[in-house]
Simulated assay, not measured.
Amino acid sequence: MVDTSLVEALKFRGDPLADTVVAELAATGRVGAVNEVLAHFRANDQPVPADLPESVRAYLVATGKPPEWADLDRVARAYEFFVDDGVHVAAVLSFAAMVNCYAQPRPSRVLAMTHGLNQPHRRLSETSQFVLNMMGCGAFGSGGAFVPTIQKTRLIHAAVRHFITRSGRWDLEADGVPVCQQDMVGSLLIFSVQVVEGMRRLGISVTEAEAEDYYYVWRVTGAMLGIPAQALPATLAEARELNSTLVETSYGPSPEGVQLTAHLLDLYEKLFPGKVFDGIVAALVRQVVDDRVADWMRVPRSGGWQRVARIGTRVLGALERAEDDSRTATAILDRAGELLLGGSVRTLTNGQSTTLSIPADLRERWQASGLCPAGTAPRPATHTVRT
């Protein structure tokens, strides 16, 4: 059982390791130089670059391994789940998890103060890249690329805290620390517990064992992001309970959340050309998020498409159950995922500075099964520390 008083205290805790590094870089004017070096630091087994300030090198060494309790066999099982259902995970991340994130007023204010309200492509592409790297084969070991992703993410969060707390526009006493550890726990539960729930709402079969393993990867990731281990539920059942008491109770309307959601819906509507499919994205969102949240975020109602979405989830569930016995059903499911993720990748990377790269092992497995969502050659993702 997670101590809820501990989780509440995390509202006032940042990430001391990363915060110290960013404060030093900002004070010495070396942020740009460090960014140039870190842009080429992408692989778990790559030596820590020599031409970095000592504080940065020490940080990278200290944060370069998963916790000792991490069971990499369980992580490997989650990888197999993602090979089979990665496109469905991506769908729920896109249509549900992002909206639920925007339903949290405090994190939405942070996004508005950093990325701005009209850049959904950046938030979505960064989240997608993070999950793709996390779910690659050997993500935490030799040949993976997730450890540098985590390390850079912690520095980015620290840079956001540094910028906002010095902006004069944030009340630390009332609002806590920007990108606090409590918000990190909330995001982790949205991207794990709520993603599995969203998949099931779409009629996609996820076994309890698969759900446990998928949550476990996020638990290991949370520890590497600096969240205290005792704040991370040990089991999926406890995670569901904390999701109910911490995350869902934090939902509410905010001007920032409404605008962020509107821009996200507009981004995804562009995947469907013409006017025939207007309203289908909003209907999918309403299928996988709570009606109250959808109303708070002013997700439009579309009676016709919502009926189609409800019928579609029943059909999808039937196809999913028939997947092992029906090549036709498998082809339909895979094609739907390919169109969704492939379309989003093309949209997100069209002229944007953040590129999306599918790990080579996932790409090969998806190609072998006749599905490669991106449909483009792999490109390295970049992460920039901003202050």
Rank of each mutant, 00 (worst) to 15 (best):
V56M: 02
A90K: 04
A145L: 06
P373G: 03
G176N: 13
T207N: 06
V285L: 01
A91D: 15
A234C: 04
S357L: 07
G226Q: 00
A211D: 05
F41I: 02
N350C: 14
S357Y: 02
G29S: 07
L132T: 07
L362E: 07
R335G: 09
A262D: 11
V206H: 07
F163L: 12
N44K: 01
H88D: 14
R379D: 13
A39W: 09
Y215V: 05
R327G: 15
Y79G: 07
V99F: 08
I204D: 04
V315D: 08
R169E: 06
R161E: 01
D183T: 10
E212I: 10
M1I: 14
L189S: 02
D84A: 10
L25V: 11
L225D: 02
A23T: 14
V315G: 01
A33Y: 05
Q181T: 10
W296F: 07
R122A: 08
T376K: 10
R346S: 02
M184S: 14
P49I: 06
L117F: 07
G343D: 07
I150V: 15
V31I: 11
V37M: 11
L225F: 10
R169C: 15
A96T: 10
P178C: 01
L264R: 01
Y214I: 08
Y251V: 11
Y216M: 04
F140Y: 12
V206C: 03
R301L: 14
Q352T: 15
E338G: 12
D175C: 13
A336R: 12
L189E: 02
Q306F: 09
T249E: 05
A76K: 05
M134E: 13
V285S: 01
C372K: 07
D45R: 05
V179E: 00
M113G: 09
E210S: 02
V220E: 01
Q306M: 13
D51L: 11
R307D: 11
V131E: 00
I227S: 00
D213Y: 03
S302Y: 00
L225S: 00
P107K: 01
G168T: 13
T349G: 11
F12V: 03
F163E: 15
Y214V: 13
V289Q: 01
A211P: 07
